[in-house]
Design a protein around this nucleic acid. Structure first.
Lengths: 202, 202, 202, 202
DNA sequence: GTATAATCGAGACGGTACGTCTTGTCTTCGA
DNA sequence: TCGAAGACAAGACGTACCGTCTCGATTATAC
C-alpha cells in the first residue's frame, strides 16, 4: 500500500512529440495568417486546418502568438549576424538590412508575424516577456558593434548605445506598424547615416 | 403617413446625441482602461459602467478602439505645438518632449491607451487608418520644423524629413511598446541630438 | 398663485386622434400580418410601414395584439347573428358557419389574426382578458339559442349550455390552431349534429 | 493531419452527450416554466439555472420550444393509454380524463407548458410541426377506440372519427386556453356523453 | 513482447463577449 | 402644440472562441 506517485500536472514529454503534427500546426498557422491576418488566426482555426485537436496546441505552446513566433521567426530571425568589418556603418548595415528586408512586405510573411506579435504583446503580459526576448537577439549584436566602434574611435565614447539601438530598430518598427512609408534600403541608409554621423567624436 | 420613405441604413443624427451619455461613455472607458488594461476593456463593461445600452455605443463608434481614441486623445493629444524658435533642437524638443512625457508611464493613462490603439490597429484594418491619422497630427508640425531648419541652414537641404520623423517617433514608440527602458528626457535628448548632428550641412 | 393643474400622465384625448393616422396603422398591421405572419409583425415594423412614430401606437393601444384585434376583428367579427328560426340546428348553423368560414383560410386574414391573438393571449395576461371578451360575443347568442331549444323541448333541460358551447367553438379553434384538417362545412355539420343529437331529451 | 476534411456543419455526436447536463437542462426548463411562464423562459435563464453554457443548449435543441417539449413531454405525457374495455365511454374516459387532469391547473405545470407551446406553435412554423406530433399521440389511441366502437355497433359506422376527436380535444384546449371555465370531470362527462350519444347507430 | 502510459483527433463543456434586435419610454425638432 | 422620428436603457438573441475536460485509438517507451 505504498502511496503511488501523485498524478500531478505532467509537463509533456518532448521525446514523444509527433514531428508531423508539430509541422502541420506551424504550416497551418502560416497559411491562416497570410490569408486572413491575425484576426482570423484562432486556435480553433489552426487546429481545424492542421487536422489536429486543440489540446495538442495548448499542450505545446502557451499562447497563439507563441505559435506564430515559432512558425515564422525562430526558424531564422534569431540568427542575427555578428559582423566585425572594422567599419561601423558596414556592421550596422549587416545587421539592419536583413531586419528591414524581413519587415518590408507589410502584408505577408515575417512582417505580418511581427505585427501580430507586437499586437499580442500589448494584450498578453506573458507573451510580452517572450517577445522582448526576441528583440534582445538584435540588441546584443548591435551593442557589440557600437561598443567596438567606440573603441575604434568611430563613435563618441559616451554615446548611449541602448538609445541608439532603440532609434534604429524603432524606426523600422514604426514604419512596419503604421505602413505609411516603405521600409526600403534608402530608409535604412538614412537611419544608419544619421546614427553614425550624429555620434562621431568631436 | 404620406410617402413611406424607404428605410435605408440611417446614419444617426449627431444633433440628437445626448451629451451626458456621450461623456459618461468616455469617462467609463478611461476608468476601465486605467484600472484593468485593454484586455478587460469590453463594450459590455463600458456600457455597464456608464449605465448605458450597448446599442448606444455601437450607434456612435465603429469599434472599441475608436472609443478609446476619442476618450483619450481628442481630449488633448492632437493639440501638437507648432514651435518656431529659430533653433532646430529647441523646436524638436517642444514637440517631442510632451509626446515622451505622455507615453512615459507605461501602465497608465495615455501610454496604456496608445499601446492599446497600436495593438488594435494591427488587428483591425479600418481602425488602422484612423489611427494613422492621429500620428499625422505629429508629422505635420515636425515636417514644418525640419523644412524651416533646412532653409536656415541648420539641416542638410537634401535630408529626408519623413525618415527623420520616423526615426524620432519610432524611438519613442519602440520603448513604449517594449517597455525595456525608460522614456525619459535623457532619451529624448539623445534622439534629438543624433538627428540634428547627424544631418548638419557639410 | 393658484396651483396650476399638475402636468400628470395625460390620458390621451380621443377627440384629438388623427383619423388618417389611425387608419394607416390598422392598414399597415393587416399588410404586415398577411405578408409575414405574426413573428414579423413588430411595433417597429408597423410604425415604419404606416409612416408613424412608435409612440403614436403605444399611445392608443395597450399591446400589439390589441392593434391586430381592432384591425381585423372589430370590423365584423363581433357582429354575431342572433338567429331564432325555431330549429336548433338551423340556429347553430347561422352562428357557427360564419365562424368556421372566417377561420377556414388558415394562413390569411381573419384566421391569421385569430391565431395571433390566441398566441398573444397566452403570453400577455392583460390581453388575455380582452381576448376572452371577444369570445364572449359568441357565447351570448349561442347561449340564447341553446336555452330556447330547451324551452322548445329540442334539448334536454339539464344540458350544460356552457359545456356545449365550448365543445363547438373548441372544435373550430382546435383545427384553426393545429391546421391538421380543414375547417369546412362538413366538419361544421358533424359538430352541430353531434351536439344536437347527443343532448336530445330522452 | 492527413486529409484535412472540409469542415462541414457537424451534427453533434449523440454518444458523447453528457447525460447529467442533459437532465439539468430539462429540469431547469421545467422549474422556470412552472414558476414564470413561457415569457420568462429564456435560453439564458435556462443555461444559468442549469449551470450550463448557452452553446450546449443550442447544440442539442433547435429551439427553445423544442427544449420545453422534451422537458415536459418525453417525461410522460406521450404515454397515452390504449384502453380496450369493450365500452366506448369507458375507453374514452381512460384517455381523456388524464388529459383533462393535466391541463386542469391552468397556471402551473403541464397546463402552463401546454399553453406556452400552443402559443409558440402559432409564431414559429417549425415548432408548429413538432407540436402537432405531440397531439398525434392522442389521435392514434382515440381513433382505435372509435373504430372498435363502430365494429361493436356502439357508434354509427359512417361517423367521422377525426371530427369527433377534434370535438373532444378541442373542448379541452378551448377551456385550457381561455380559462373561462374549469376543466373538471363533469365537463369531461358532458363531452364524452355528447359524442357517444350524438353518434349512436339509428 | 508485452504491458503501460502518453500523445493524438475529436469535440463537448462552462464561460465571456460579441454585435444585433426588439421593447417601451423619453427627447428633439419641424410643421 | 402636436406628432414623426428616433435616441435611449434594458436585456435576450444566436455565434464565435476561449481554455479545460473527457473519450477511444494509436503509438512508443520501458519492463
Amino acid at each position: 500500500m505504498i502511496a503511488p506517485a501523485p498524478p500531478a500536472n505532467h509537463e509533456p514529454d518532448p521525446r514523444r512529440r509527433d514531428a508531423r503534427v508539430h509541422r502541420a500546426i506551424l504550416e497551418a498557422t502560416v497559411e491562416l495568417l497570410e490569408s486572413g491576418g491575425y484576426k482570423r488566426l484562432t486556435i480553433e482555426a489552426i487546429a481545424a486546418r492542421a487536422g489536429v485537436g486543440k489540446q495538442t496546441i495548448y499542450r505545446w505552446w502557451p499562447s497563439k502568438a507563441a505559435v506564430v513566433m515559432e512558425a515564422y521567426i525562430a526558424a531564422g530571425l534569431e540568427r542575427v549576424p555578428e559582423p566585425d568589418t572594422g567599419n561601423l556603418s558596414e556592421d550596422l548595415r549587416a545587421i539592419l538590412v536583413p531586419v528591414f528586408r524581413w519587415n518590408a512586405a507589410y502584408h505577408r510573411g515575417t512582417a505580418l508575424a511581427n505585427k501580430s506579435m507586437m499586437a499580442e504583446a500589448q494584450i498578453n503580459p506573458v507573451f510580452h516577456e517572450t517577445y522582448v526576448q526576441l528583440h534582445r537577439s538584435w540588441w546584443g549584436p548591435l551593442h557589440h558593434v557600437l561598443e567596438r566602434a567606440k573603441e575604434r574611435g568611430e563613435l563618441r565614447p559616451d554615446a548611449d548605445s541602448g538609445a541608439l539601438i532603440d532609434l534604429m530598430l524603432g524606426a523600422s518598427w514604426y514604419r512596419l506598424l503604421l505602413e505609411h512609408a516603405p521600409l526600403d534600403e534608402r530608409f535604412a541608409e538614412v537611419v544608419i547615416a544619421t546614427v553614425v554621423n550624429g555620434n562621431r567624436p568631436r
